[in-house]
Structures are given as structure tokens and as C-alpha cells.
């Protein structure tokens, strides 16, 4: 059997299945794949926690509380990629907008899968923002008086890092809700 024959067979099979079942099946896969983005914040926040612990040990009297606060703030920003993925997965699972739409079954199914796949981009901002949080916590531990300046710079940098995650979220939402691929 050549490759062309197998692909024709698969796509022919997919066109004969009930479209609603096809959409639900690919939604399930999409929701699962979307949560792979949990890798990023995990790594990033771990790095931030480690750097903050080191900062607390280096300057326990003055730098401990500011370093912890900066670490929590930075970790919260790193968490946003995970929350975006969670929101998309929950939308796909519980309020699936593609199930009742009329259209070609396989296109709707592929949209659901694509929405989930797009959220994997959350790995990058998660790691990067966690790294920024860790280094900021370390810096604040060394010089606690400069906390607000350091936090401002950290937030600016993390916002720039977040932009690709937001593009991914926008594309996923457009795939799910807006009827572009008619």
C-alpha cells in the first residue's frame, strides 16, 4: 500500500463519520494537547523559586520580604500562560462552540484540534517569564530599596515576553468562535 492510498483511505473514512462525533473526538485531543503548555510555567516558576530562596539566604534581614514579594509577583505573571491553556481547554470541553455549527465536519474538527495545538506556545513565555522573575528576585534581595524600579522593569520585560502567548490565544479563539474557515 502506498502513502497516497493510506491518506485517501483515512480522509475518506473521516468524511463518512458523523460530523458531530468527529468534532468531539478532535476536541478531546485538542483539549489534551492544549494542557502541554503546563511545561513552561512549571520550569519558569521553579527557577524563580530557587533564585528567590538563594536571595533570601544571602540577605535575610532586609531582603527576605521584598524578594518573596517579587518572586510571587513574577510567578503570577508566568502562570498566565497556564491559565490561558486551561481556559481554552475548558471552553473546548464544556462549552464547545463547534459542535452545533453547520459546515464541513472535518474542517470543524481540525479547527478544534488547531485551537488546542496553538496553545502549546505557552511553554515559551512560561519559561522566559519565570527566568525574569528569578533574576529580579535575586536583584531585589541584594538591594531591597530599589524594589519598585526593578519590578517595573521586570513587568515591562515580562509583558513583551507574553505577546506571543497572546497571539496564540487570539488565534485559538478565532479558530473556535469566528467562522473564518468556511
Amino acid at each position: 500500500m502506498d502513502v497516497q492510498g493510506i491518506i485517501d483511505f483515512l480522509i475518506g473514512w473521516m468524511e463518512n463519520v458523523d460530523p458531530k462525533a468527529l468534532v468531539l473526538a478532535f476536541s478531546a485531543i485538542g483539549a489534551g494537547i492544549a494542557m502541554i503548555a503546563g511545561i513552561g510555567p512549571g520550569i519558569g516558576q521553579g527557577f524563580a523559586a530557587g533564585k528567590a530562596a538563594e536571595a533570601v539566604s544571602k540577605n535575610p534581614e532586609e531582603g527576605a520580604r521584598p524578594a518573596t514579594i517579587v518572586m510571587l509577583l513574577g510567578s503570577a505573571v508566568a502562570e498566565t500562560s497556564g491559565i490561558f491553556s486551561l481556559v481554552i481547554a475548558v471552553i473546548i470541553l464544556f462549552a464547545n462552540p463547534l459542535v452545533n455549527k453547520e459546515g464541513v465536519g472535518i474542517v470543524l474538527a481540525a479547527s478544534a484540534l488547531g485551537a488546542g495545538l496553538s496553545m502549546v506556545a505557552g511553554i515559551g513565555p512560561g519559561i522566559g517569564q519565570g527566568y525574569a522573575a528569578g533574576k529580579s528576585a535575586e536583584a531585589v534581595g541584594k538591594r531591597p530599596k530599589l524594589q519598585s524600579m526593578i519590578v517595573r522593569t521586570m513587568l515591562l520585560g515580562q509583558a513583551i515576553a507574553q505577546t506571543t502567548g497572546i497571539y496564540a490565544l487570539i488565534v485559538a479563539l478565532i479558530l473556535l468562535f469566528v467562522n473564518v474557515l468556511k
Binding site: 510571587l72 509577583l73 510567578s75 503570577a76 502562570e79 491559565i83 507574553q162 490565544l169 479563539l173 478565532i174
Partner: peptide
């Protein structure tokens, strides 16, 4: 107060985007 930030920032960024796209 700082622990509540962890979900707060995430939701406060996701909800305007979702709402505006809808």
C-alpha cells in the same frame, strides 16, 4: 494577598481578550 495574584493576573489578562473577541 500575594498568593491570590497567581490566578488573578491570569484571569484578568484572559477575560478582556476572550470578551472582546466574542
Amino acid at each position: 494577598k500575594y498568593l491570590s495574584l497567581i490566578t488573578q493576573i491570569g484571569f484578568m489578562m484572559a477575560i478582556p481578550i476572550i470578551g472582546c473577541i466574542l
